[in-house]
Design a binder for these strands. Structure first.
Length: 113
RNA sequence: ACGGAGGGCCGGAUGGCCGCGGGGUUUCGGCCCCGAGGAAAGUCCGGACUCCACAGGGCAAUGGUGCCGGGUAACGCCCGGCGGGGGCGACCCCAGGGACAGCGCCACAGAGAACAGACCGCCUCCGGUCUUCGGGGGUAAGGGUGAAACGGUGCGGUAAGAGCGCACCGGGGGACGGGCAACCGGACCCGCAUGGCAAGCCCCACCAGGAGCAAUGCCGAAUAGGAACCUCGCGCGGGGCCGGUCGGCUUCUUCUUCGGGAGAGCCGAUACCGCCGCAGGGCCGCCCUGGCCCGGAGGUUCGGGUUGGCAGCUUGAGACGUCGGGCAACCGCGCGUCCAGAGGAAUGGUCAUCGAACCGGCACCCGGAGACGGGCCGGGGAACAGAAUCCGGCUUACAGGCUCUCCGUGCGU
RNA sequence: GCGGGUAUGGUGUAAUGGUAGCGCCCUAGCCUUCCAAGCUAGUCGUGUGGGUUCGAUUCCCACUACCCGCU
């Protein structure tokens, strides 16, 4: 099978819609998911509040989340779903990268099942 | 060697794999090039740029700056000086104009806190008295208070005293000399009360239109060409006339019970008008000369639409190196090299090798009496921080490292 | 991007440049069989760093944190 294309969420309304869906927290991040029920694409958004830290810390956290999503979602995400990854206060920037990937996989398993 | 002062620079490196933003190219598979900082930060100043406003003169208000000279597009920045203060010194700090233009304040303490004056004292005279007290006069040396007390020390002088006289110090004025200037030196003269605070009001000199790239321009989409209420205003004249209303005329058409009715036309009036003028109102800080705008204005509330694209957008008062000028800030010229441009926002993730700080160890080596330091071994794994229109500064944050110059003390030569 | 404001015990707030007050809270005591209320006493302080001044919560400068407004 060919992995479905990843699209990035940009609009505020998409983020708000996803926030009303399911959510699952892990040590490294918070994941929100919503089954749109239409389309084939996996869409994903990233966000970090000011609680994460200054601009350097926020951007670094978002970059690591992007990389994790790029590696994990094509294989474990479901087409037609929206996911929002939220950086956490202490862990996203410092956590071991392999553990961060496991966090996302585990969160997806709980959200889907 | 130890301690200290002032600058300058760097602030992780290399490679593999997988990615991101922009540009170019393409045989659409890909390939090539470029891609954060010294503070990109705070937004404290100064500009460029864009839009809006903008007539002249005088006056005022508000804000800012404040020794002198220079640098600069400009600055509240920088450089070089001057003055004051601190340090043995290298060097550091200073909003550093004006206190006889005026007003104000100076708590507590103290007799007295700003036209000087006299609490305790000191001296003298008079009266009572003989422990001393009261009154008049002279005096400002001493006392104590305070952040600050109307020059200081010494000698002379005197009833006691006092710049009363003298010497030195301090202060004021100052011919003249030096310096572009701030300022410095200063013959000579003056016995010399004439505080402090202007980062209190203020005075003087100088500077300043407002807003900001979410500026601004173009294209596209969509909806609307709004509603309600409140406040103030609600005059005159001219002009216009589609349609309306009223009155008149009777040229035409038509109906007629021959009185007239209806329609069209013409004339006049009226409301009306997003026409004009005046009055009026408003604006240009104020005034004068003058100008502009409105003709309904202003305000509040409600309702509706859009949150797309392109330009601005990065090559510029550019940076670095070299050469020349200048004590320096900086400037000039030629040559060479370099140049992020996103738009919920790229410049990363991961692995390997190397690696500073830091932590631990003392088997071994070196120095040392020792503590310990260096070598060595193991761990560890890089500060502050991310461009958002662009520049010049300032300020603040920053693990640590490298380097230059200078000062003090000690030792050696 | 532009602009404004605030910071005073744990909390809410006062203070012409001259000893930082007040209420609530807290602690202790009194009162009460106990609690509450009341009474008495006490602890706790000007965001940070400089400067002006004899003297700063106050004036000036820089910084920090928080809040608000406009576009």
């Amino acid at each position: 099978m060919t992995a479905p294309a990843l699209e990035t969420l940009l609009k505020r309304s998409d983020f708000l819609a996803c926030a009303r869906g399911k959510r699952q927290g892990t040590k490294g991040m918070m994941v929100q998911a919503l089954n749109r029920g239409e389309g084939e694409a996996i869409r994903v958004g990233f966000t970090c509040s000011r609680k994460v830290g200054n601009a350097v810390a926020r951007n670094r956290a978002k970059r690591r989340l992007r990389e994790v999503a790029r590696l994990v979602l094509p294989h474990h995400g479901r087409p037609g779903w929206d996911y929002v990854l939220i950086g956490s206060r202490d862990n996203t920037a410092e956590r071991d990268f392999a553990a961060l990937q496991d966090d996302l996989r585990q969160a997806l398993r709980k959200l889907h099942g």
